[in-house]
Nucleic acid binder design. Structure first.
Lengths: 135, 135
DNA sequence: TTACCAAATGCAACAATGCTGCAAAGATAT
DNA sequence: ATATCTTTGCAGCATTGTTGCATTTGGTAA
């Protein structure tokens, strides 16, 4: 599935900014930061445009945002279609890499009486295979 | 355990700002935001002082910070002593309440080969008992 | 192809969270 | 009471994110 198809499927105007951003994320295997996307993109876009583009892509379920420790923000392509209720990510304490994990086999805690769970976000922090060796 | 004891135990200078903040948190049953603490505190303190005080209290394991959706920041008293590797919180989508939950019975996902887990943060979003009825 | 309209972009301004350096004020030990 | 070390307030700055408005661009209909 390429950039054009993705935008078409969601009835989004095929602008150069959107194409560049999705293109940059298709190439990356892990979640990427705004800076990393900027460096992968040819043209130069306004900061506002970036944020609005991210917002649009998130609202359409094309990408999702991952925030680690309140100030590290990364974006990753969402798996097509299905709405997931468990969002699971790994963060490497050493190199800062963020990776989406499968959330099917996690178990969430008992909630107090009357509480209702809608969705969950789990961040596992630790060391990735590379940093685990180098450490 | 009162404010004075808590600060003494950690060899922290007993300043009015620290006492006020801890006092405000001892009173609250849930996690509180900077604004909520400000409104509970008599004196008026500089924003920087607040942040530095939070930082000090966090470093000493007295409180911890919870961030929901990148921009809602709340603080809660930590249970005394023990270092926990699973941090679990509940966030109410309707009233914004944040509550610490017990993380003993959660299960974290399988990690890719070579990865090592150090700690995890889980946020369960949904509706608290009150909002679940009103909804 | 051209003209048009809705959508997207760039710019300026602003808000919230957070940090740092430095001088003034406060706490603690003697 | 004084000396010393810590904390506080202030000013300034950085990052992430938002909004309003004028301009440009993309898609479409003539």
């Amino acid at each position: 599935m390429d950039t054009r198809e993705i935008l078409q499927k969601h009835n989004l105007v095929r602008t150069s900014c959107r194409q560049s951003i999705i293109g940059a994320m298709l190439g990356a295997g892990t979640a990427v930061s705004e800076e990393e996307i900027k460096s992968k993109v040819d043209g130069t876009y306004d900061r506002t445009t970036f944020y609005r583009t991210f917002k649009t892509l998130i609202e359409n379920g094309i990408i999702h945002k991952i925030v680690v420790d309140n100030h590290l923000v990364k974006y990753a392509l969402s798996e097509s279609g299905m709405h997931k209720s468990h969002h699971v990510h790994f963060y490497c304490n050493q190199c800062g890499m963020v990776k989406c994990l499968d959330g099917n086999d996690i178990k969430t805690p008992e909630l107090p009486t009357g509480y209702k769970e809608v969705e969950t976000e789990l961040i596992v922090k630790g060391f990735c295979s590379h940093c685990n060796l180098v450490k």
